[in-house]
């Protein structure tokens, strides 16, 4: 059987917020290592890779590997029945066609459980090659979210240019052009610092819509890491973490737009 107890059930709500715009349904793959999900959006432009480590759970048991296909809109409905600070237990029997979510209030005086039907989903796993990225940008996640939101008003695409000077986000459309430049600042211990690890300058262009969807994960982590190399998909990574627990990560891959 599978059983996983998450001390902060609200984490799963935030994870769902971070993937529900991109995916209608997805398989959660359970193994001894933890819970993993890998899925592309319908148009095969972006990919979500979620990893929740077994160690992040208060209790974790997985006797045999299983894949639980879930409708994410249904899962959102169930998670709405919980409070953010409820303790969440997810459990399923081997070969079951339902998964059970149990919510316990912090003081233990309310327990609710919900069964959700599982789906048989065609798994289409992709092999993602190991890549040494030409530039890796680490920045505050809410700054990333604001930049993407602001520039999305201008055009359908956002160019990200990374160089020694820093990072420049640009978008052009009917009303004009927007540019937002971030300088590297190395002020130690600063929460709002931007760090660029650069092997070579890179400029790539991406669809604003997807970047906006990725930014929904900003609630999971204060930092976001953007990794870019010429002519390969962008990686946007958020740690899934609280001050006292490292749950894993959510990574988004986004295919670049091609120059005309």
């Amino acid at each position: 059987m599978f059983e996983a107890r998450l001390a902060e059930g609200g984490i799963l709500k935030k994870v769902l917020d971070a993937i529900k715009e991109l995916l209608n349904e997805a398989s959660f793959d359970c193994s001894e290592a933890g819970l993993q999900l890998q899925a592309m959006d319908n148009s095969h432009v972006s990919l979500v890779s979620l990893n929740l480590r077994a160690e992040g759970f208060e209790n974790y048991r997985c006797d045999r590997n299983m894949s639980m296909g879930m409708n994410l809109a249904s899962l959102v409905k169930i998670m709405k029945c919980s409070a953010n600070d409820d303790v969440l237990t997810i459990k399923a029997q081997d070969n079951a066609d339902v998964v059970t979510f149990v919510f316990e209030s912090k003081n233990g005086d309310r327990v609710s459980d919900f069964d959700m039907k599982l789906m048989n989903l065609d798994q289409e796993h992709l092999g993602i090659p190991e890549t040494d990225y030409a530039c890796v940008i680490k920045m505050p996640s809410n700054e990333f979210a604001k930049i993407v939101r602001d520039l999305s008003q201008f055009g359908e695409s956002i160019a990200i240019a990374c160089s020694k000077q820093g990072v420049k986000f640009s978008s052009t459309g009917d009303i004009g052009t927007g540019n937002i430049k971030l300088a590297q600042n190395s002020s130690a211990d600063s929460d709002d610092k931007v760090v660029v690890d650069l092997q070579e300058p890179v400029t790539l262009t991406f669809a604003s819509r997807y970047l906006n969807s990725f930014a929904k994960a900003a609630g999971l982590s204060e930092k976001v890491t953007l990794s870019m190399s010429p002519d390969v998909p962008l990686v946007v990574e958020f740690k899934v973490a609280t001050s006292d627990n490292d749950y894993g990560y959510i990574r988004y891959y986004l295919a670049p737009k091609i120059e005309d």
Partner: peptide
Amino acid sequence: KDNQQTLIVYFIGT
């Protein structure tokens, strides 16, 4: 025409 690539170009199905 949208010049958006898909991920299939870069990643291998397994």
